[in-house]
Amino acid sequence: MIGDFAKEYLHSDLRQMREAMLWKVDGLGEYDIRRPLTMTGTNLLGLVKHLSVWESRYFGEVFDRPSPEPLPRWDDVGERGADLWVTEHETREEVIGRYRRVWEHSDATIAALTLDSPGFVPWWPRPDVQLFNVLVHMLTETGRHVGHADILREQLDGSTGTAAEYAAPPHDAAFWEAHCARIERAATAAAATSGGRGDAAPTP
Rank of each mutant, 00 (worst) to 15 (best):
residue 27 G to Q: 11
residue 70 P to V: 05
residue 171 H to G: 02
residue 42 T to M: 15
residue 8 E to R: 15
residue 18 R to I: 03
residue 53 V to L: 13
residue 124 W to K: 05
residue 23 W to C: 10
residue 123 W to F: 15
residue 27 G to Y: 10
residue 31 Y to C: 06
residue 52 S to V: 02
residue 167 A to R: 15
residue 38 T to Q: 08
residue 20 A to I: 02
residue 6 A to L: 15
residue 97 G to N: 04
residue 149 A to Q: 05
residue 84 L to Q: 12
residue 17 M to V: 00
residue 86 V to L: 10
residue 50 H to L: 04
residue 33 I to P: 02
residue 173 A to K: 08
residue 34 R to L: 08
residue 79 E to F: 11
residue 106 S to L: 01
residue 123 W to I: 14
residue 21 M to S: 13
residue 177 E to S: 15
residue 2 I to H: 11
residue 70 P to F: 05
residue 119 G to W: 03
residue 45 L to G: 06
residue 151 I to Q: 11
residue 75 D to M: 04
residue 18 R to T: 02
residue 92 R to K: 14
residue 166 Y to F: 15
residue 19 E to M: 09
residue 152 L to F: 04
residue 43 N to T: 06
residue 173 A to L: 13
residue 9 Y to V: 04
residue 96 I to K: 04
residue 131 L to E: 03
residue 186 A to Y: 01
residue 69 E to N: 02
residue 1 M to T: 03
residue 155 Q to E: 06
residue 173 A to I: 05
residue 41 G to I: 02
residue 153 R to M: 06
residue 177 E to F: 12
residue 59 F to Q: 08
residue 129 V to S: 05
residue 64 D to I: 08
residue 56 S to M: 01
residue 69 E to M: 12
residue 50 H to G: 08
residue 152 L to H: 03
residue 27 G to R: 09
residue 121 V to H: 07
residue 191 A to S: 14
residue 196 G to N: 12
residue 50 H to T: 04
residue 94 E to D: 15
residue 9 Y to I: 00
residue 58 Y to D: 00
residue 84 L to W: 03
residue 129 V to C: 14
residue 145 H to D: 06
residue 101 R to H: 03
residue 94 E to R: 12
residue 153 R to Y: 04
residue 68 P to E: 02
residue 172 D to M: 07
residue 129 V to D: 05
residue 161 G to D: 11
residue 85 W to Y: 12
residue 41 G to N: 04
residue 97 G to L: 04
residue 5 F to L: 11
residue 17 M to K: 03
residue 80 R to V: 09
residue 125 P to V: 06
residue 115 L to D: 05
residue 29 G to Q: 00
residue 204 P to S: 14
residue 29 G to A: 00
residue 190 A to Y: 14
residue 171 H to W: 03
residue 77 V to D: 14
residue 71 L to M: 15
residue 196 G to R: 13
residue 79 E to H: 02
residue 186 A to G: 09
residue 115 L to S: 02
residue 30 E to S: 12
residue 13 D to G: 04
residue 28 L to I: 00
residue 72 P to V: 08
residue 124 W to Q: 02
residue 198 G to D: 09
residue 72 P to W: 12
residue 143 G to D: 07
residue 32 D to K: 01
residue 173 A to F: 07
residue 148 H to K: 05
residue 154 E to K: 06
residue 176 W to C: 01
residue 123 W to A: 09
residue 8 E to Q: 15
residue 23 W to P: 05
residue 44 L to F: 07
residue 172 D to Y: 05
residue 37 L to Y: 10
residue 45 L to M: 09
residue 36 P to K: 08
residue 27 G to V: 10
residue 165 E to K: 12
residue 190 A to D: 15
residue 83 D to Y: 03
residue 150 D to W: 00
residue 140 T to F: 09
residue 85 W to A: 09
residue 60 G to K: 10
residue 167 A to E: 15
residue 8 E to G: 00
residue 182 R to S: 13
residue 122 P to I: 07
residue 199 D to C: 02
residue 202 P to G: 07
residue 131 L to P: 11
residue 66 P to H: 11
residue 193 T to W: 00
residue 24 K to R: 14
residue 194 S to N: 14
residue 167 A to N: 04
residue 136 V to H: 03
residue 17 M to G: 05
residue 49 K to L: 08
residue 198 G to T: 03
residue 41 G to E: 09
residue 74 W to H: 01
residue 14 L to D: 06
residue 21 M to T: 11
residue 143 G to M: 10
residue 158 G to L: 00
residue 16 Q to G: 15
residue 183 I to N: 04
residue 122 P to N: 03
residue 137 H to S: 06
residue 93 E to Y: 10
residue 148 H to V: 00
residue 177 E to G: 01
residue 60 G to E: 10
residue 56 S to L: 09
residue 62 V to C: 12
